[in-house]
C-alpha cells in the first residue's frame, strides 16, 4: 500500500522533458505570432487544428479502441455551422444566389467564439444521435458505418441548396482563425484530454479498449462510455472543422472526403495509439511535412536543370510513408507512451 502511494506521488502530471518541450512550443508560437510571415502563420494555425483533430481521433480510436472513420463528417458539420453563423448577412445574399438561404438564418451574425462552441455542440449532438445506434456494432462494421455516415453528411450538404449552398460551397467566411485561436483551442484540448484520461472516465475508456467483456464484468457501462467518448470526439472534430472553415475562408462539401479522415488517421498512427504527446508532435510534423513535400507537386529549378513537378506525387510519397510506418513499426504501434 505504501509503495503504491509512493509511485503514485512520483508520477507527476507531466515530467520535466515534456514541460521543457511545452515551454519551447509556447515560445515558438509567440515568436511566430509576432512575425510578419503570413504563410508561416497559416501553417502554424493549421498545425494547431490538426492537433485538435489528432487528439479527437485518438480519444475514440486510440483510447476507447473503437475504430471510427467519421471525422470528415463531423468536421463538415462544424465548418458549415461556423460559416453560416459568422458570414455577414450581405455576404450571405451574395453566396446564396441560386436559392436564398433559409429565412431564420439570413440575418444571424455571431461572434467567432460562440459560433465555434456551437459548431462543437451541433457536431456533438450529431455524434450522440449517430453513436447511440451505431456503437452497438463492433470494429469493422463500426468503421464502415461511420465512414458511411460521413459520406451521407457530404451528400446531404451537396443537396441542401438553401442551407449549405450545395456544391457551390460557401465563400467570404470571416478569417478569424489565427495562431492564437487555433493554439488556444489546441491547448484546451490537450488539457482536457490529459484531465479526462487521468480520471475515472479515461480509465474506463482504456478498459473498454483492452477487453470489452472484462470491462463489462467490472461493472463499466459499455454503452454509456462508448457514446460519451464518441460524442466528445465529435465535439472536438466539430470545433476543429469550424476553425478550419474560418482559416480557409471558403468551404465546399468535397473538401470533406474520406481523404481528410485518412490524414487524421495518419497523424494518430504516427503519434502512437493512445499517446497524447506523440499525437501533438506528429500533428505538427505531418502538417509541416505536407507543406514541405508540396515541392514535389511543383516544378523545381535547380539552376542547371528544370524538373517538372508531377501533381499527386506528394500524396504518393505520403501514403508510402504511412504504409512503411505501419509495416515496420507494427509491434510498437499499439503501445502508446
Amino acid at each position: 500500500m505504501k509503495a503504491n502511494m509512493k509511485t503514485a506521488k512520483s508520477k507527476k502530471l507531466i515530467d520535466n522533458r515534456t514541460f521543457i518541450s511545452f515551454v519551447i512550443l509556447i515560445i515558438a508560437l509567440i515568436v511566430i505570432n509576432f512575425t510578419d510571415n503570413d504563410y508561416i502563420k497559416r501553417i502554424t494555425s493549421l498545425c494547431g487544428i490538426y492537433v485538435i483533430l489528432g487528439l479527437s481521433m485518438q480519444l475514440i480510436n486510440g483510447f476507447t479502441g473503437l475504430f471510427s472513420l467519421g471525422h470528415a463528417g463531423f468536421m463538415a458539420i462544424g465548418a458549415y455551422t461556423v460559416a453560416i453563423l459568422t458570414i455577414a448577412p450581405e455576404d450571405k445574399v451574395m453566396n446564396f444566389f441560386m436559392k436564398p438561404i433559409l429565412p431564420f438564418l439570413a440575418n444571424v451574425e455571431w461572434w467567432f467564439f460562440p459560433s465555434l462552441i456551437m459548431a462543437g455542440i451541433i457536431a456533438g449532438v450529431f455524434g450522440f444521435l449517430i453513436g447511440a445506434p451505431v456503437l452497438r456494432l463492433t470494429d469493422d462494421y463500426l468503421a464502415i458505418a461511420t465512414l458511411g455516415f460521413a459520406e451521407i453528411i457530404r451528400v446531404v450538404f451537396t443537396n441542401t441548396q438553401s442551407l449549405t449552398n450545395g456544391a457551390l460551397g460557401l465563400k467570404a467566411i470571416p478569417n478569424n482563425t489565427n495562431v492564437l485561436w487555433s493554439w488556444a483551442m489546441a491547448f484546451i484540448t490537450i488539457g482536457f484530454m490529459v484531465f479526462l484520461m487521468k480520471g475515472s472516465y479515461g480509465k474506463a475508456f482504456k478498459a473498454i479498449r483492452e477487453d470489452e467483456i472484462a470491462a463489462r464484468s467490472m461493472g463499466i457501462n459499455l454503452f454509456r462510455h462508448k457514446v460519451m467518448s464518441f460524442t466528445f470526439s465529435a465535439f472536438l472534430a466539430g470545433v476543429a472543422g469550424g476553425l478550419m472553415a474560418s482559416l480557409l475562408g471558403t468551404i465546399d462539401p468535397n473538401m470533406f472526403r474520406i481523404t481528410l479522415t485518412f490524414n487524421i488517421l495518419l497523424i494518430m498512427v504516427l503519434g502512437g495509439l493512445g499517446n497524447i504527446k506523440g499525437t501533438v508532435i506528429s500533428a505538427i510534423i505531418v502538417t509541416a511535412a505536407m507543406e514541405v513535400l508540396r515541392f514535389l507537386d511543383e516544378s523545381i529549378n535547380l539552376g542547371f536543370i528544370q524538373l517538372e513537378g508531377i501533381p499527386g506525387m506528394r500524396m504518393v510519397i505520403f501514403s508510402m510513408i504511412l504504409m512503411a510506418v505501419v509495416i515496420f513499426r507494427k509491434d510498437r504501434l499499439l503501445k502508446g507512451n
Binding site: 469493422d140 481523404t259 488517421l265 501514403s319 504511412l322 504504409m323 505501419v326
Partner: peptide, 10 residues
C-alpha cells in the same frame, strides 16, 4: 486495416 487504407491511398 490502416495498412489497407494506406495501400488504397497509394
Amino acid at each position: 486495416l490502416i495498412s489497407a487504407i494506406g495501400a488504397s491511398f497509394f
